[in-house]
Design a protein around this nucleic acid. Sequence first.
DNA 1: CGGTGTGTTGAAAGGTGTCAATGCTAGTGG
DNA 2: CCACTAGCATTGACACCTTTCAACACACCG
Lengths: 249, 249
Amino acid sequence: MGNLAKHNSIVKKFSLLLDLSKKEKNMLLSLQDNCQSIPAKTDLVLEGKEFVNTYIIQDGWAYNYKLLEDGRQQNLNFSIRGDFIGLYATVFNKSENSVRALTDLTVCKVEPDRIIELFGKAPRLAAAICWTAARDGAILGEHITRIGRRTAYERTGHIILELLRRLEAVDLAESDSYEFPLTQEILADTLGLTTVHMNRTLRTLKNDGMISFDGKRIIVNNRSKLREVAGFNPTYLQHKKLPGKIKSL
Amino acid sequence: MGNLAKHNSIVKKFSLLLDLSKKEKNMLLSLQDNCQSIPAKTDLVLEGKEFVNTYIIQDGWAYNYKLLEDGRQQNLNFSIRGDFIGLYATVFNKSENSVRALTDLTVCKVEPDRIIELFGKAPRLAAAICWTAARDGAILGEHITRIGRRTAYERTGHIILELLRRLEAVDLAESDSYEFPLTQEILADTLGLTTVHMNRTLRTLKNDGMISFDGKRIIVNNRSKLREVAGFNPTYLQHKKLPGKIKSL
DNA sequence: CGGTGTGTTGAAAGGTGTCAATGCTAGTGG
DNA sequence: CCACTAGCATTGACACCTTTCAACACACCG
């Protein structure tokens, strides 16, 4: 079990926030007893539809998105290993955006009631889950400034670095490179660009020696340089120890 | 007291979500026993700085924003009567964005510990507060699609309608018009445009008969038409009764 | 082998940004 | 009551980033 816990991504993630007791670890693990595979391009949540379940990603990528009536699409955020999908199902009936599997996915289904139960039994875990939600909010805020106030070039570099950072935190990146399952269309729909311009921007980034691709892997060649030109400041992703007051929850 | 409760915006807002008991109403009211005035342009929260307090707005507008190193600014969201400012101070040390008073403000200062206390004592209020946080998330998501996938014209119409809707919910709008304290610069920094283009877009909206101004009031002349051209769908703002399962929290 | 999805390119149009100047209004101080 | 200032709104001309439209290339797959 100790071994299992060590390799479980939520346990690992939460351990960065607070020192988990054995009991807390077990609770987290037992939450993930109902795993399943989901093929790429499946919608796990549909905007406006009732929530069914919350999921914890074990492997693969998902993204949530919104569709306009005329077909325009805007992707809001990506979810990777250790992230929750549909967390608000715990409290709410409906979702304000859809979630789709970007790659084949391994997820653990968690019935909302079990999270509610957790809130009662393990307030520190509840706080950690809240942290998760708050961090998602911070990512959305950063995404807004990315789209609203940065050029295509900066946006692209910025999100590449964000993903690198997030993937590192769950051991899915090494030596500044990671598996990159995003098509240019999905990236474009994320950054508020057209596919064509996305293509050109990536090309420029490559020509400038900022990034390169090795099959499906992306390599950040000069991380500090890219950070500088993209204006990337990772504080909003930092895992910090939760303040002590949480204990009093 | 009953009268006070009726006119308190948080009480009113939460009443749309669930049927508050007398005791719950009192708890909400007693939360707001420490009011103060804050002049326009004051920063209540600074990005990266420690949170000090959470506030509940009684009157006036605030907005939260991010600054890039080179001076570019991106506003993320507005807060009006009945909204929380710095809610995450309850759980976290630092803020990921700054909050500034747009107008003179009347706020009630709430010490984070009192919210934590509330979570323990009044789970249904806790759920309502979570709803608040989730709605803010939904607004951010909508804002992303607004900036990422809509034209300047659509963006502007869209946010004008969002604000109309939100202000109506707290009795600050009547007959499709409301006090409009936003300068074109702040609007531009919100919608990811330049001041110049913001000005031109507003002009076009006026010329098209969509909106007009009467002093500091904005009037939406043809709401359904504007809804159509701006692609505004207000479901993400809807106050719905919380599902029953909350009670078991 | 012919799809189908994805990536790539060129040329031209168009939405937004940039720069720079002017107008307007409210408030301040003499 | 009149300068004078500060902040905001408004305009024109022009540059440029990004989109649009339309092909074509390439790889994977049944």
